[in-house]
Amino acid sequence: MTAYVVHRQDRPATAAELTPLAFAGYAHFTAMQVRDGRVRGLDLHLERLRSASVELFGRALPDERVRTALRTAIAAGPADLSLTATVYSPAGEFVVAGEDVEPDLLVRTAVAAAGPAGPLTLAVVEHERDLPSIKHVGEVGKTYLLRQAAARGFDDAAFLDRRGRLSEGTIWNLAFWDGAEVIWPDAALLTGTTMGVVRRQLDRLGVGQRVQQITPADLPALAGAVVMNSWTPGVPVHRIGSTSLPAAPVFLDLLHRAWRAESPAAP
């Protein structure tokens, strides 16, 4: 029988331990795909948890404690799975915890995911996430906007900031192609772990990259677009708002090749 777990640190979580988190909105997390017990970009996941904990709670769990919890959860299930590690304060959401209160860690595993095949259509919606550099919980806005986009016949939504720049998707990073270089949006956004892996491997492959402001008016001149997250390094996007984008198989292949070039690591 396939086993998936919900652990607090490295042991099964009880209902009493889960209840405060279930009704809280002040926590952060990272999500990863585990294949054969290993994870691509593990260092980026650990850095994400560390830096977000310092920002939200003033301190972070030691990396080795986090890795032990990840190892225990992975060992309890199949070789391929999805894993979410959530950090929260046991003192409660509305308590200003002192330095003596250490954050706690919840690890949940589930069936492995691969994301949609695409190509996708994205509605353009005006939205800026709170604390965009942190992957935090309780973001009802982006789920609401996803549902609104689906009701209008789109697959998902892309966010437009107050300066008219495209930033990110509901659960995705955006990436664009000009036919020669990869373009990353210049805006306040969450730097995804998959995005981080792809960027460093594209550098090693000698593929040109740049960060540039992208507005809806810039889209017709581009040669392709994708979304990416922990599920996949690239799902093609063939329309953003009212603008159609060409298929870019070379671009998509580059992103997947960069992802495969990263050696997965065991926690």
Rank of each mutant, 00 (worst) to 15 (best):
M1Y: 14
T2N: 12
H7D: 14
R8S: 13
R8M: 14
R8Q: 14
R8E: 10
P12S: 14
A13E: 09
T14M: 09
A15D: 12
T19H: 14
T19Y: 13
P20A: 01
P20S: 03
L21S: 07
A22M: 13
A24C: 09
D36C: 06
D36F: 09
R38L: 06
V39L: 12
G41P: 03
L42W: 10
L44P: 01
H45M: 13
R50T: 13
S51C: 10
A52R: 01
V54E: 14
E55F: 12
F57D: 00
F57C: 02
A60M: 09
L61P: 04
D63M: 05
D63G: 13
R65K: 12
V66Q: 08
V66H: 06
T68E: 15
A69I: 04
A69Y: 05
R71L: 10
R71W: 05
T72W: 02
I74S: 02
I74L: 05
A76R: 14
L83I: 10
V87Q: 03
V87A: 10
Y88W: 15
Y88I: 02
S89L: 04
A91R: 00
F94H: 15
V96G: 05
E99W: 12
P103H: 03
P103K: 03
L105R: 00
T109S: 15
A112Q: 10
G115S: 07
P116A: 11
P116W: 08
A117C: 03
A117M: 05
P119C: 01
L120W: 00
T121H: 03
L122Y: 06
A123I: 03
V125G: 06
V125E: 15
V125K: 12
E126D: 14
H127G: 03
H127E: 12
R129C: 07
L131H: 07
H136Y: 07
V137D: 01
G138N: 09
G141D: 13
G141W: 04
K142E: 12
Q148N: 09
Q148F: 08
A149F: 08
A149M: 09
R152A: 15
F154E: 02
F154A: 09
D155C: 05
D156F: 02
D156P: 04
A158Y: 03
A158C: 14
A158S: 10
R165E: 06
S167Y: 05
E168W: 02
T170Q: 06
T170V: 12
T170R: 02
I171M: 11
W172G: 00
L174Y: 00
A175V: 13
D178T: 07
D186W: 04
A188G: 08
L189Q: 13
G192W: 01
G192F: 02
G192C: 03
G192A: 02
G196K: 06
V197E: 08
V198G: 00
R199Q: 14
R200D: 10
R200S: 13
V207Y: 04
V207E: 09
G208N: 10
Q209T: 12
V211T: 15
P216H: 12
P220F: 07
A223W: 11
G224H: 05
V226E: 03
S230A: 15
G234T: 07
G234H: 05
P236T: 07
V237A: 00
H238Y: 04
T243V: 15
S244E: 15
P246G: 04
P246W: 04
A247W: 02
V250N: 13
F251K: 00
L252R: 04
L254P: 01
L255N: 01
H256Q: 12
E262M: 06
S263P: 11
P264L: 04
P264T: 06
P267F: 04
